[in-house]
Design a binder for these strands. Sequence first.
DNA 1: CGCAGGTTTGAATGTCGTCAAACCAAGTGG
DNA 2: CCACTTGGTTTGACGACATTCAAACCTGCG
Lengths: 238, 238
Amino acid sequence: MDTLVKPEPTVPMACRSCRVRHGGMCEVLGPVELARLAACSRRTRHGSGEALAVESDAVHGYANVTRGTVKLSRVLRDGRQQLVGLQFAPDLMGRLFSSESPLSAEAATEVELCRIPRDVLEGLVADSEGLKQRLLEQALQDLDEAREWMVTLGRKSAVERVASVLLLIATRMGGRDAHGNITLDLPIGRADMADFLGLTIETVSRQMSRLRREGVISVQGHRCVVIHDIEALGARSG
Amino acid sequence: MDTLVKPEPTVPMACRSCRVRHGGMCEVLGPVELARLAACSRRTRHGSGEALAVESDAVHGYANVTRGTVKLSRVLRDGRQQLVGLQFAPDLMGRLFSSESPLSAEAATEVELCRIPRDVLEGLVADSEGLKQRLLEQALQDLDEAREWMVTLGRKSAVERVASVLLLIATRMGGRDAHGNITLDLPIGRADMADFLGLTIETVSRQMSRLRREGVISVQGHRCVVIHDIEALGARSG
DNA sequence: CGCAGGTTTGAATGTCGTCAAACCAAGTGG
DNA sequence: CCACTTGGTTTGACGACATTCAAACCTGCG
């Protein structure tokens, strides 16, 4: 299953999000906590499509996405699926205080995780004021994003939804080229876009073609999107 | 604006959620914190339709819903609206660590709040491990509910959505009568149901009529719903 | 009683889903 | 190098479901 990789000798990747988000040093954890984390965290690598957690299974641990993109999803009894979130590096992933996962998680691309066993993290959280703070902030941010997406699902048209997901991915993964265009390597295919947007594959494809005809984007080989006019895309996103 | 009511002499209502959820005593706050809360919290009463917080306004405080129902919503620039949550008593409401509210909050019914000024709560949180824990749990629960609702918005048909909202309200507000039927006094009208479900008023109304024709529910005077067959309603909710 | 607001119902329209076929890109083996 | 396969994507024709617009209808209240 999981390929265990030896822990980093220095600062574990679990703290990368702290460093990234708070700038410079790790303000959240003291040296003692860092040592405990370093001792217990394991870096694992997963291929695209690999299941990382299954709905209603026991939660084994918490993880920090250090590379790649993870899909979070829920399914109805009859098989209809809805993606409820995308986690990009360096997001924290997991669920404290409930013994079973309310979601499934699957690697969308090649993914690298820094995993922390459940009991270790809960012990750390009980002791460390700073870590609990960090987790609370992440939960509140995830909550805001989920509610933001509820507007997309409840009130936006098909084009607006597709424009919205492109913007979302652009803000998390986009790189600007020489002409100021934004280039994306989509971490998900049309099927996942459809499940994220509450649409069908065909509708997603049609709206992509439409944005292409309108000159807002161009597409190279299905997975690579160039955003020519980010303003126009924003306007198109509702 | 807000009608200030004198604080309770004994345990402030702000702790009601602790007692309700953890059973019996307040495990979260010690006597010192309780005293600070009691000194600073104010109970306020609001009429149906009154705005409690406005999107992108400064956050003035945190509140505990002690009676009634509050609607949380977001609007798109062109006026399309989406309800992103309903808060029933005794939910905690508010948003730490961001200076402006990401949502609007409005009283759906007559509402009674126990308000705590922002700075007081943040001070308390900094000191009290237990309170931070409690807030984290509430945030995680809200997150689960938001994601659950994303499935409703993204993947369910109109009947399923209406059945879902009736079930949601039933679990939070429903009372059983002598025959085992569940009786609801809807805290929101058809327009708000539509905004919560991502539908139009007319579609909500049609699906209510449909469930009525099918004998799953009956309706008395628009606001009062009797659920005859909760199983069937569950089946109808997807 | 009669008004006002919210709700229900109907008919027509439009958007998105379904089904089916063509297409493309990437990989495999001759 | 090119035929061939495979999985994902695009496009088209058609149908279903939700929206729109409009009118009638309740229900609560003055």
